[in-house]
Lab assay of single mutants.
Amino acid sequence: MATDAALRRLLRLHRTEIAVAVDSAFPLLHALADHDVVPEDKFQETLHLKEKEGCPQAFHALLSWLLTQDSTAILDFWRVLFKDYNLERYGRLQPILDSFPKDVDLSQPRKGRKPPAVPKALVPPPRLPTKRKASEEARAAAPAALTPRGTASPGSQLKAKPPKKPESSAEQQRLPLGNGIQTMSASVQRAVAMSSGDVPGARGAVEGILIQQVFESGGSKKCIQVGGEFYTPSKFEDSGSGKNKARSSSGPKPLVRAKGAQGAAPGGGEARLGQQGSVPAPLALPSDPQLHQKNEDECAVCRDGGELICCDGCPRAFHLACLSPPLREIPSGTWRCSSCLQATVQEVQPRAEEPRPQEPPVETPLPPGLRSAGEEVRGPPGEPLAGMDTTLVYKHLPAPPSAAPLPGLDSSALHPLLCVGPEGQQNLAPGARCGVCGDGTDVLRCTHCAAAFHWRCHFPAGTSRPGTGLRCRSCSGDVTPAPVEGVLAPSPARLAPGPAKDDTASHEPALH
């Protein structure tokens, strides 16, 4: 009773807030009518008042009428009001819900409408889902798969039609296919003929059939049928067999079959498995989609049935006599038709004709302190090069084509190399640097090759510096006499390219 009084008091307290929050009759008014909170006449009256005075006034009048009803109607109103779709449509209802007392429970059932309790003993237990329907569909599909699609060729003596089998029958139906081979029951999904010589313990000319048996419980189990008994694959494991010639990621696949039913060829011909030897223990289905393919039931050349050999690369099948050149017997292992072999060759040939990528240039590290003349020119003028003790990398590039010797140069053309002071002394051009340390401070000019250098860098042994005729380390061993002091540049003949010694390969005349 306390809860009923509290709900009535809360409705009177929030009546105006609810009326202002509800700006549309749908969905709240319609939901109240659906849950029998508002009768039909009051529903029509509220809609009429909404058209006349507006939605807030109409709902305020409806809530005032609701306060005169019993506690069950008020409880049902609060339940409908706080439904998710009403809270989404009328956003101003959320503060009312947040301020609702926590001790007021809106989930209690309506009085007088409590459903009768059902004894637990009368409640049926839930049924577990079964796979009976899938099993029945598999039974119905198996006879259809064994139905012949056409008439065999005159040369083929193997013609068999499976008798119709009602689904209610649980007995196995067997077809006489000759040579002791028996087909599987209607619940078998796949059958492959297997030679009895590969099964340990088999006697006589009995041949087993590799099947997948579907049981009534819905589970499946792969086994071997020899005669009327089934054997699990673990009985046929043979770890010492060295003649297993397995197909790549293979499961067994029928390579020879008669049109209309699988079996042995007439005249004692023995149908073979995809792999010879003992049956392997793992009978998992292969991951290669080509091995799941269903080959055609007629020859791809003459479009006739009979004894066919199936290609492992495509769905086509052929007569042995229709092949070019014809085959006398079934080859062992994987067999592919000429079209598949030709496609494989065409895929391999473009790969062989692809040009080989060019090898990157060989990189040879230079000892610290040495650099090529090109690196000396590329440096920024007026700045010493940083990191001189790091190992430089010199790339061996292809030799350029031989060019004509340089033409003779006048001494005026070499004027930018040297600057003559007032006393006739050779001065260095701006930006000249030593080729060893890279520093341009207090550098000297070689009178023979006009290269800038430090005496301490080229002659670290402490050799005394002569007063005139300074030469760098590369030119100090040259027998050519030094030019007379005061000459602007060496003779043009000295600039012609010539053979250089091994220790002077990195010091070429550089223009500054």
Rank of each mutant, 00 (worst) to 15 (best):
A5S: 13
A6G: 13
A6Y: 15
R9G: 08
R9M: 05
R12M: 04
H14C: 01
H14T: 03
T16V: 02
E17T: 04
E17K: 04
I18T: 01
A21I: 01
D23T: 01
D23F: 03
S24H: 01
S24Q: 01
L29W: 03
H30G: 01
H30P: 01
A31G: 02
A31S: 02
L32M: 01
A33D: 00
A33T: 04
A33V: 15
D34N: 03
H35M: 00
H35D: 00
H35K: 01
D36C: 00
V37F: 02
D41W: 05
K42T: 01
K42C: 01
F43Q: 00
E45S: 00
L47T: 00
K52P: 01
K52T: 13
G54W: 02
C55P: 05
P56I: 07
H60T: 02
H60K: 00
H60F: 11
H60Y: 03
H60E: 00
A61Q: 04
A61E: 05
L63S: 00
L63T: 00
W65D: 00
L67P: 00
L67G: 01
Q69N: 00
S71A: 11
I74N: 00
D76L: 05
D76S: 04
L81G: 01
K83T: 04
E88F: 02
Y90L: 02
Y90C: 02
Q94C: 00
Q94R: 15
P95M: 14
D103S: 15
V104L: 08
L106S: 00
S107N: 01
Q108R: 09
P109S: 11
R110M: 03
R110T: 09
P115Y: 09
V118G: 09
P119C: 10
P124Y: 15
K131Y: 02
R132S: 01
R132L: 01
E136A: 12
E137M: 15
A140G: 11
A141K: 13
L146G: 03
T147C: 03
T147K: 07
P148I: 15
P148G: 03
R149Q: 15
R149F: 08
A152H: 07
Q157G: 11
K161Q: 07
K164A: 12
S168E: 05
S169T: 01
R174D: 03
N179L: 10
G180H: 14
I181N: 15
T183V: 06
M184D: 00
Q189C: 02
R190D: 03
A191I: 01
A193H: 15
A193E: 04
M194D: 00
M194V: 14
S195A: 14
G197H: 05
V199A: 06
G204D: 05
A205C: 10
A205T: 12
L210Y: 08
I211V: 12
I211F: 02
V214W: 04
E216D: 06
G219I: 14
G219Y: 12
S220T: 08
S220I: 04
S220P: 01
K222Q: 11
I224V: 05
G227M: 00
F230C: 05
F230Y: 04
Y231P: 05
P233L: 04
P233H: 14
S234T: 05
K235W: 12
E237I: 08
S239K: 01
S239D: 02
N244L: 03
A246W: 15
R247K: 13
S248F: 11
S248P: 14
S250W: 09
G251Y: 14
G251M: 05
G251R: 05
P252H: 05
V256G: 11
R257Q: 06
G260F: 09
A261V: 12
Q262R: 08
A265N: 15
A265G: 09
A265D: 07
P266R: 07
G267V: 12
G268Q: 04
A271E: 11
